[in-house]
Design a protein around this nucleic acid. Structure first.
Ligand code: MN
Ligand code: MN
Ligand code: ZN
Ligand code: ZN
Lengths: 137, 137
DNA sequence: AAAACTATGCAACTGTATTGCAAAGTTATT
DNA sequence: AATAACTTTGCAATACAGTTGCATAGTTTT
């Protein structure tokens, strides 16, 4: 009997172990991106390294994407169904300097850039910092 | 008798101590942005914390700007003369995944973004990753 | 010259990320 | 069904960037 999310893991070539199902479920519940340390706190007892490796596996297999928001801890969020993490799939992220939350602005595609001669592009990390709607209330 | 660079420090309200002159000189010699650890290696004997605080002071006073390139160590580069580190002063950065260098693309301004309702903008960190011209030779 | 302020140096500490290795669990082979 | 091969998980230890506290040295003001 497979969990609701097994299919999504299988589609990305990740074996849906118990641990991975749990992690996927937690990630799916988040409105904003989450760090390894924050993920760890969602569980009563879990090994940090197992979570670390689960996140790495998810990232490799494009189940999640990493966001370097400059806080010193990398944040993670589920990829959209259609996402292949190509430059054209990438969206902008927003980091609130007030509450510390990091948002996926899934609707805002990363703008194209004309690089100088002989520079070739692989990916883009674009993080806007400011105050989020919640904190602006 | 003041060093060549004293004026630039004074203009930014930083007292040009011997240490700060040295650090400024090293920063000025760099073609690409530099981390605290790399800066430390440019000196025979220097205290890491002093360099750390020098960089913090320089950053506060807008002598330099910080670049979060996602490598785990923040890079620093001198600001342009006209820079006030406002959103419109910001440029794109490029991190080469081959040689690890982080470039200031001073000519490429960070594109404007239409944030969602009630999100307010303070700054933007945009890092393009790929292979630089040197490594593409 | 003394007092007040600023900058530097050293030691210690925090937190994130990462590796090695052994044990447990799963899948494939006989 | 037993064995072997492979994958995943757990625990211990380590690496390293960033940061703080406090004492000393240096500078500026009174
Ligand atoms: Mn995202
Ligand atoms: Mn720059
Ligand atoms: Zn907020
Ligand atoms: Zn390069």
């Amino acid at each position: 009997m497979g969990s609701n999310y097994d299919q999504q893991l299988i589609e990305r070539n990740v074996k849906p172990t118990a641990m991975r199902q749990l992690v996927y479920t937690v990630l799916n519940e988040q409105k904003t991106a989450i760090s390894l340390a924050e993920l760890e706190q969602k569980f009563e007892k879990v090994d940090r390294v197992t979570l670390y490796r689960t996140l790495k596996t998810f990232e490799d297999k494009k189940v999640i994407h990493a966001i370097e928001d400059g806080t010193g801890s990398v944040k993670y969020a589920l990829c959209q169904d259609t996402c292949e993490c190509n430059p054209k799939d990438l969206h902008v992220h927003f980091h609130c300097t007030e509450c510390g939350q990091t948002y996926c602005l899934n609707d805002i595609q990363v703008p194209g850039i004309n690089l100088p001669q002989n520079f070739t592009l692989e990916s883009v990390n674009m993080v806007v910092k400011g105050v989020c709607d919640e904190c602006n209330k």
